[in-house]
Amino acid sequence: MPAQITSLLSNRDLDRLARLRINAARRFTNRSRGEHLAAKGGTSTEFCDFRDYSPGDDVRFVDWNIFARINRPYLKQFHMEEEMHVVLLVDASTSMSFGGKLQLAQKVAAAMGVIALRGAEKVSAYSIGGAGGQGLRPCSGRASLGKLFAFLEGIQSGGDVPVDMAVEGFLRNHRGRGMVVILSDFLTAGDMKRAFNLVHSAGLEVFALQILSPAEINPEVTGDFRLVDSETDGTLDISNAAALLALYDEYRTSHQATLHALCQQRSGRFLTTSAAEPFETLFFETMRRKGWVI
C-alpha cells in the first residue's frame, strides 16, 4: 500500500483531484504564462475564434484552408493562457476548533491548492489567527505541493482575529489577480461587506465557504445555561433556550443569506456546509454541482 502523501487527503482523493479544475467565473489572470485561459486572446494552442485579416497580422495564423475555399484570408485566434493567483485563506481562529470545522477547512484548502498547483496556477495560503506559520509565500508547480501540505497540516486553531480584519491584513501584502478561497465560519460581527469589496477591487474573485459545526446549525441546548464565547471569553446568560432556538435559526440563516448576497453581488461564490459533511461528498459532489470545480 503506497504511503500517504499528506494526512489531509487520501491518495485516492488526490487522484480524483487531478481530473478537476477550478472554475473561476471571472478571469482575473496575471501576465505570467500559465494554463489558465485569460479573458483576452493569446497564443495558446486552444482555438478561440476567427477574424478578418488586417495588414500587419502575422501570416502564420492565417487559416489557409479557408483561404483556399473562399479566397479570403481569415486569421485564427487562440486563447491566452495566463497564470491565476489562487489565495487560500484558512480561518484558524478559536471558533474554528469546534466540531471539526478547521479540519474540513484544511482539507478543502489542500484540495483547492492541489488543483491550482497542478493547473500551473500560483498558489499562496494564509491562516487567520491560529498557531504555526502565518502564510505560504506564492508558489507554483507541482513541486510546491509538499510546501503547501506542510503549511496546511501545520495550522492550529487559536486567537480571536476576525475574518474581515484578516482579509484586510493579507491584502496589504498581496500582489496579483486571481481568486481567493476563504474557508471560515464567518461568525463575526465585523463588516464583511468592506472585506469583500477590498478583495474584489484587488482583482480577486471570492470563493467563500462557510463551515459550521452541527451544534451551530442545530444547537441542542435546553433550559438555563451560561454561554461562554470561545474567542472573547465573554459570557451570556440564557434562560429557556428552547424558546430562543427559532430566533437563533432565523438570525443564523439571515447572516448566511447576507454573506451569500455579498459574494454574489461581487461575482463570487458562497457555500455553507456542515463540518460533519464528509469531505468527499462536499468537494466531489456539492462543490462540483455548485460549479466551484469542474
Binding site: A189, R226, V228, I238, L244, Y248, H255
Partner: peptide
C-alpha cells in the same frame, strides 16, 4: 446555570 462554551454567542445575544 451550567456553562456552555460556544464558538460565538452573536446570534444568542441578539435573540
Amino acid at each position: 446555570r451550567r456553562a456552555v462554551k460556544v464558538s460565538t454567542h452573536m446570534f444568542w445575544e441578539r435573540a
